[in-house]
Design a binder for these strands. Sequence first.
DNA 1: TATGAATGAGGGTTCATTCAT
DNA 2: AATGAATGAACCCTCATTCAT
Lengths: 200, 200, 200, 200
Amino acid sequence: MKKDKEAAIFEGALKVIKQKGFHKARMSDIAKEAGISYGLVYHYFKNKEDLFDSIINQWWNGLFQLIGRISRETWPVWDKLKGLIFYFLDTYQKNPELVNIFITEISRSSTNLTTNRLERFKEFMALTEALIEEGQRQAMLRNDFRPRYLTYIFLGALETFVSAMVLEDQKIRGDGQKERIAGSILEVFLNGAKTQDSKG
Amino acid sequence: MKKDKEAAIFEGALKVIKQKGFHKARMSDIAKEAGISYGLVYHYFKNKEDLFDSIINQWWNGLFQLIGRISRETWPVWDKLKGLIFYFLDTYQKNPELVNIFITEISRSSTNLTTNRLERFKEFMALTEALIEEGQRQAMLRNDFRPRYLTYIFLGALETFVSAMVLEDQKIRGDGQKERIAGSILEVFLNGAKTQDSKG
Amino acid sequence: MKKDKEAAIFEGALKVIKQKGFHKARMSDIAKEAGISYGLVYHYFKNKEDLFDSIINQWWNGLFQLIGRISRETWPVWDKLKGLIFYFLDTYQKNPELVNIFITEISRSSTNLTTNRLERFKEFMALTEALIEEGQRQAMLRNDFRPRYLTYIFLGALETFVSAMVLEDQKIRGDGQKERIAGSILEVFLNGAKTQDSKG
Amino acid sequence: MKKDKEAAIFEGALKVIKQKGFHKARMSDIAKEAGISYGLVYHYFKNKEDLFDSIINQWWNGLFQLIGRISRETWPVWDKLKGLIFYFLDTYQKNPELVNIFITEISRSSTNLTTNRLERFKEFMALTEALIEEGQRQAMLRNDFRPRYLTYIFLGALETFVSAMVLEDQKIRGDGQKERIAGSILEVFLNGAKTQDSKG
DNA sequence: TATGAATGAGGGTTCATTCAT
DNA sequence: AATGAATGAACCCTCATTCAT
C-alpha cells in the first residue's frame, strides 16, 4: 500500500537522521533502513530536502495545532505551559527520534535553517511569548521581566530537559514520570529554586 | 611567525563554521578566509576534525578553568552561577562565533559528538551539577528537586538566552546589558516567574 | 482501439523530442503528453530506441517512397528535385515536429546514428545522387562537378532552408510560399546567384 | 604545466564528444582520454557545460575574428565567401573534431542551444547575410532573392559539404583539394549547376 | 489493456587530503 | 613554509525498464 512505504521511508529517515544527523544521513541508508531500493524514495519525496521538510512539518504541525487549542482555552497560564511541556514529553515518548531531530537539527543548528524553517521557529517563539504575556496581563506572572526573556527561560529549561533525555537516550516510564518532570520545570519556573529560608 | 598563521586559520574557521556549519564549511573556504592556500592548513592542523577540536577546546578550556576557579571560592551559589552566566556572555561579546559554534554544533547537535566530545559535555554538566548540589547542601537551593533537574533548568535557560542572541545576531552593548540579562536569568531561576500575589 | 493509443504515443513523442531532443526526452514526458501511464508505452514500443526508430522510419518511408516514384518518372531533373523539395516542405507543413527531428537528430547528429540509421541516410544520399547523375547524363546538369558534390550542395541548401524555418519556428503559409521557396532554391542551384552582368 | 593539462582535457573532450556526442560523453571518459583523474577536470572547468562552452567558443571566436577581418576588406564578394569556406576547411583539416562538434552539436541540434548559444548562431547568420547583401548592393549578386535566402543556400551548401566529410571521416589532402572543394561550392552557388545548353 | 510502484545502473559533482615543487 | 595540482571516495539524483496487480 502506498501509505505503508511512505511511512516506512519516514520511519527510516527518522532513525538514520537521528543517528547520523541530516548531513551525514545518506539516502541509501534511509532506503536500506526502510527496506526498499533508494530509487523509490524519490517516488515519495522530491529529494532529501523535501524528506527533511516532511519530518520537520510533522513536528511543527502538531505543535502549532496544540498551541492553537491552548490559546482558545481559559486555563491559568501554568496549565497552558504544562500543555506545552506535555507535547514535548508525549512526542518524545511516542517518537523520540522526532524530538531528537527537532532538538539537534532545528532548534539550534542555525545552519540547517532555511529562511522558511527559521520563520516557523520564530513563530513558535512568538506564540509562546503570547501565552506568557497573557499571564503577565492577568497578573499571574511577574511584570518586571520582558515577556521575551521569560519565554527564553521557560523554553530553554524545557528544551534542555528534553535535550538531556535525548542525549542520554533516556526512556520516559509512565505518566507519573511525565508529571514529575513537568512539575519540576513549572515549579522552578514559577516559584524559583531558592529555598524559602534564604528568601526575603 | 608560526602562531600568526595558525591564529588566522583559527579565526577563519570560526567565521566560516559559523556561517555554514561544520559540515558545509570547506577547508578551502577557511583557507581563503585566512588568506592562505588550502594546502597550508594541513601544516598547522592534522585535518578538518583536528581543526574543529581545537576550536571546541578553546571553548571548553576556558570554561573548565573558570569552573575550577569558581569551585574553589566560597561565594554563595548564586554568585557562582552568575560567574557561569558571565562566561557565556563575555565570550559572546568577545568572540560571538565561538559561542555560536558551541551552541549550534556542540551543545545540541549530537551528531557532531564523538565519544570524546560527548565526555566533555557531560563533564560540564556534572561540574555545574556539583555547584547546584553544593547550594542545596548549604540550604540555599531547594532540596525537593534532583540536582540534575535543576541543572537542566538553569543551563537550559542560559543556553536558550544565548541561542536567541546567536540566532538573531544580537550585539551585547556594555556591561549594563550583561548585568541585566544575568539578573533576569538568576532572578527567575531563584525566585520564580510567579507574582507574589498568586503565590500561596 | 490499439492504433489510437499508439498514435497518441507517437504524437507525444514527436512533441517532446522536438522540445527536448531525443536524449532528454523522458518516457514519462511522452506518456504524459499522450495522456497515458508510462508503463503502457512499453506495450506499444519495445523501448525508447524502438520508439525513436518508428519515428525515423515514418520519415524515411515517406521519403523513399517518393524517391521511388520520382525515379520512375521521365521528368526533367529540376522537376524531380522540386519534388524532393516539396516533400520536405509538405511534411514540414503537416508535421513540423517530424521534420525538426529529422534535421536535428538525424541529419546531423552523428551520435544518434546507429549503423542501421546511418545506412538509411547514406542510401538517401545515394538515391539523390542518382537523380543528379541522371541529370548530368542527360546534359541538363554540368558535368564538370562530381555528382556527389552537387548532391551535397543541393541537399545542403534544402536542409539549411528547412533548418532555419525549424529553428525560428516559422510557419509555411499556403502553397504560394512553398512555390517561392522551392523556386529560390532551384533557381540558385541551377542558375547561380551571380548577376548576368558580372558573368562572362 | 597548467596549460598542458587544460589543453589535454580540451583535446580529450573533443575526441570523446565527437565519438559519443555531448550528452553521452562522460566526464570520466574525457578525463581518461586526457590521462588524468576526473576530479582534475573540475579544476580547469567549472562543469561539463562550461567545458562544452569553451569548446564552442574556440570555434566561434575564430570564426568571428575571421568575419571581422573579411568585412574590413574590399574584396569582391566571392573572395569573401571563399574566405569563409576556407575557415571551415582549414579548421577541419587541423581540428576535425572541432568542426564535427560544431556541425553535430551546435549547427543543428537545437536542443543543445541555450539562449546564449543560439544568439551566437544567429549572429553568425546575420554577419554572413551582411556579406551577401553587400554583394547585392554592388550588383555582384542577384537582387531577385532575399539576402536571407541566399545566405541559407550558401551556408547550407557549405555545411553539408563539411558534414558529409565529417560523417564519412574523410581527410582533406593538401591545399589542392581545399581549392577544388571551395571552387565547386562557389561555382555552383554563383553560376549554377545547369549546363549552358539548357539555359536560356 | 492499463497502472504506477519498484529497481538499480549510471553519471555529475564535491571536497578532504596528499604531494611534487 | 607555502602552493595548488592531483586524486578518488562519496553521494545525490535521474530515468529506462520491469512487473505485480
